[in-house]
Amino acid sequence: MFFAESSAYQPMFVIWFNAEPILLLLRQEPEVARLAGIYLKWASLGLPAYAFNCISCSMLTINSRQGLFAVPTRIIMAVAPINVLLNYVLGGLEPIRLGFIGAPIATSIS
């Protein structure tokens, strides 16, 4: 099922990776389009994980007979602090400090 659903994120990858020219075609301000394009290029690295997360959450919550409603919540509770820490380290901590691109990289990792 994952492989069938994974084809759905491939068009999203193309759109996200080419967001700046698309936004410029839609007459977005050039600076906003540039920053959104940079953010989405780095965030697109996490699309396979986003796709897997969406599929697994729906599989676990749709089938109520399994009684696995709490599994996605527990996963989020474990990953959210890691995401916060990675955002702090990659975005603002002085030795590394990637700045603006640190946030999508941290989200892609977590």
Rank of each mutant, 00 (worst) to 15 (best):
F3K: 09
E5W: 15
E5V: 14
S6E: 01
A8H: 15
Y9G: 00
Y9F: 07
Y9P: 00
Q10T: 12
Q10D: 09
Q10F: 15
P11S: 03
M12L: 15
F13S: 09
V14F: 10
W16N: 11
W16Q: 10
F17H: 10
N18S: 13
N18Q: 10
N18P: 06
A19R: 02
A19F: 04
A19H: 02
P21C: 09
P21M: 10
L23I: 09
P30N: 01
V32A: 11
V32C: 08
A33Q: 03
R34F: 12
R34S: 14
L35N: 11
A36S: 12
A36D: 08
G37V: 04
G37P: 00
G37L: 03
Y39H: 05
L40D: 02
L40N: 01
L40W: 01
K41C: 08
K41P: 07
W42S: 07
A43C: 06
G46Q: 01
P48C: 00
A49K: 05
Y50L: 12
Y50C: 07
A51D: 01
A51M: 05
F52C: 00
C54P: 11
I55C: 08
I55W: 08
I55H: 06
I55R: 04
C57T: 15
S58V: 13
L60I: 00
I62Q: 15
S64A: 14
R65Y: 12
Q66I: 13
Q66W: 15
G67E: 00
L68Y: 14
L68V: 09
A70Y: 15
V71L: 09
V71D: 04
T73A: 13
T73K: 12
T73N: 11
I75F: 11
M77R: 13
M77Q: 15
P81W: 05
I82E: 07
N83Q: 07
N83H: 07
V84P: 03
V84D: 07
V84G: 07
V84S: 10
G91P: 01
G92A: 08
G92D: 08
L93T: 08
L93M: 14
L93F: 15
E94M: 09
E94F: 08
P95Q: 02
L98Y: 01
L98I: 02
F100G: 05
F100Q: 06
F100K: 06
I101W: 07
G102W: 02
G102K: 02
A103F: 13
A106Y: 05
T107R: 03
S108K: 03
S108V: 03
I109Y: 01
S110W: 03
